[in-house]
Design a protein around this nucleic acid. Sequence first.
DNA 1: TACACTATCTATAAAGA
DNA 2: TTCTTTATAGATAGTGT
Lengths: 177, 177
Amino acid sequence: MARKKVNLAYIANASARKATLKKRKKGLMKKANELSTLCDVDACAIISGPHDFHPDVWPSDSGVKHVIARFKKMPELQQHTKMVNQESFIRQRINKAEELLKKQLKENHHKDMTHVMYQCLNGGGFQYLNMVDLMDLDGLLKQNLKDIERRIEILKKDRSDMTTINEIGREQNGLND
Amino acid sequence: MARKKVNLAYIANASARKATLKKRKKGLMKKANELSTLCDVDACAIISGPHDFHPDVWPSDSGVKHVIARFKKMPELQQHTKMVNQESFIRQRINKAEELLKKQLKENHHKDMTHVMYQCLNGGGFQYLNMVDLMDLDGLLKQNLKDIERRIEILKKDRSDMTTINEIGREQNGLND
DNA sequence: TACACTATCTATAAAGA
DNA sequence: TTCTTTATAGATAGTGT
């Protein structure tokens, strides 16, 4: 974002990509930290390269600082109530987050498959898909076919209804010849 | 970050806080999106206000775009291998992230308690802590006491050893008078 | 309350060490 | 390659509607 407008696409050059990752990762973590401090929210950022299993996460130990800072700002009576509920509250939020994660993954997979379907129908072959993906794709295509057939049926029905109406209309207007 | 340098602390004014949250949340999500697009990583951001159970997450539907963009950049043979492993890979990464989350929560709680302990010993009272936290604090204090006692024992032992050595030294040098 | 504006602050791309 | 520097793109605090 300096000296040039960024082209928002994958950076092909490996070292440039690594440098950008390092800088922007730091920036993102800082932003998450600031947001949680300023606005009384829990923010969490996870960054993981695709080739290793070592995701970087925020909050780290710095996380506790803003929690305590926030806590100290509350009226004392609220502090007490808050503390009582804290554990169950956190547990609920974790569950909610995990549910959302699962939902997102499922949704993403479906969209991925839809995209793959269009790609394949658009000239690409199926040779690079594995069995699991092919079966997913199969299901997706069948579902689409069913939808299409249902629509055809509806259109047929509409047309025949329309014809009937027209016939009735003609009869009523005495236009039968 | 405009018209004034931000004071990095909780914003007391509710409407100002809400406005900032909205702006910065959008910013953070955008940054996460950019990072994942530019650098071939999976980034995830979760923001949840403390008073509701509706966390905002990224990636959303835009997430799939960069995944596919990335996929297309790979040599075709790698695409195949990658696809085969994708499912198990993602599952492993989720497990890893969940483990990290749990670990972080535990660590944060411990630090929180340590901080509370110092606060209390430093003049504040215990009246605003609930039973669960008091029990945690109790355990923490006992642990610390044990550590202290152990260190005292070691010091005692060292001193008696030292005395013995001194006595031996005096004997060897014929300094007994 | 929720937007739009914009002066200013912050993040960072590119270059240099 | 990684750290430092610097010019500029991008984010946003305060303000007005």
